[in-house]
Nucleic acid binder design. Sequence first.
DNA 1: CCTTGACTTGTTATGATGTAACGTATCTCT
DNA 2: AGAGATACGTTACATCATAACAAGTCAAGG
Lengths: 163, 163
Amino acid sequence: MSDLPQTMAFAPHDHAHCAGSGLARAEQIAAERGVRLTPVRRRALEILLEAHRAMGAYEVLDRLAADGFGNQPPVAYRALDFLVEHGLAHRIRRLNAFAACTRPGEAHSPAFFICTGCSTVAEAPGAAIRAAMDEAAAALGFAVARTSIEAVGTCPACRGAAA
Amino acid sequence: MSDLPQTMAFAPHDHAHCAGSGLARAEQIAAERGVRLTPVRRRALEILLEAHRAMGAYEVLDRLAADGFGNQPPVAYRALDFLVEHGLAHRIRRLNAFAACTRPGEAHSPAFFICTGCSTVAEAPGAAIRAAMDEAAAALGFAVARTSIEAVGTCPACRGAAA
DNA sequence: CCTTGACTTGTTATGATGTAACGTATCTCT
DNA sequence: AGAGATACGTTACATCATAACAAGTCAAGG
C-alpha cells in the first residue's frame, strides 16, 4: 500500500491554529447537534489534528491505545466514523486513511489532491466540483448524498523537483 | 461491507451490445498499444462485461478459477490492474470493486453514482466534473493524473419506492 | 532453429483493512 | 432511583491486497 501523506497542505500555514480552532469547532458542533464528543472521539480528533496528515485507522488506534483507550480496531473505527459522520474528519478512500477536516462545520464536499511524489494530501473546497456532479446526477435522476472526490497527481514542489 | 451492485446503469439498455462491443474494443486497444490481451485478461474482462455490474476481485477470481485459471488473489488483481491501466475497466474505491468500462478507449474521467438502496452503480461521463477538478488543481499548482469521482445516494427507482 | 530477454502466470505466504456480535458501563431523562 | 438509549471494550473473524519467487511463454535477433 502507498505511503501515507506527510501533511495536509502544499503550502506553509499556521498549523497551531488548525489544531486549536479545530477542537473548539468540534465542541461547538457536537453541542449544536446534541451529540457527545466523548474522550475517545475527542482524542481521535486531536490525534488527526496534531498529525496534520492523513492517517490509517490502525495508526490512530495505536495512539489511542497508548493513551489508555482500547486497543482493538472497533475502538478506532467507531471514533473515526463518528468524526466523519459529523463532518469533523474525512475519509480518503484512495489511501484507506482519515484526516481531520480543515473546515469543520461548513457544509462542503471537499476535494482531495494526493501527490504521488511526496504523499502529501491537500483538501480543497469542492463546491464547483460538487455542482458539476449534481448536474450529472440530475441527468440520471440520482440524488447525491455524499461524494468522494479525489485526484492523484503531482504537487507543485514535486513538479519542480522532477524538472 | 455493502452489497455489490446489481447493474451498471439505472435505465434499461442493450446489454448484449455492451459485452460484444466491449471485447472488440479491447482487442483493438490492445493492438494499438502493443500490449497483450492474454487469455486471463480477456476472460476477466468478459466476466465483468457479462456480469454487467461492479464485482469484487475475489468474485472475479472465483470465476477465473472455475475456468481453469489460477485461484490465488494475484491472478485476479493482475488481470484487473491491467484492465484498469488500459482503460478497459474501472476501480470503484467505495465498493472495493471493479467494473468494465462502458466507454473503452474514449479518454474520460468517469463519475460513478452508487445507489444505497439497490446497490446499482451507474457510470456517467465526467468531463464537466473533471474540468472543475482541473481548475481547482490549477489553483494549487497541482497536476492531476487520475481521478476518483464517486457519489453515493439514491437512484430514480429507489426514490420512487421510498415516497 | 534456438537462444536470450522481457513479460506473464501460478504459487506460497503474509500483510493490511474493516466488521459482527456480545457484555458491560455510562449517560440522560423522568 | 429506574429505564432506555448510547457508547465502550473485547473476542473473533471477514475481506481486501501485495511481496517474492519459480516456472512457463512469447517475439526478435543471431
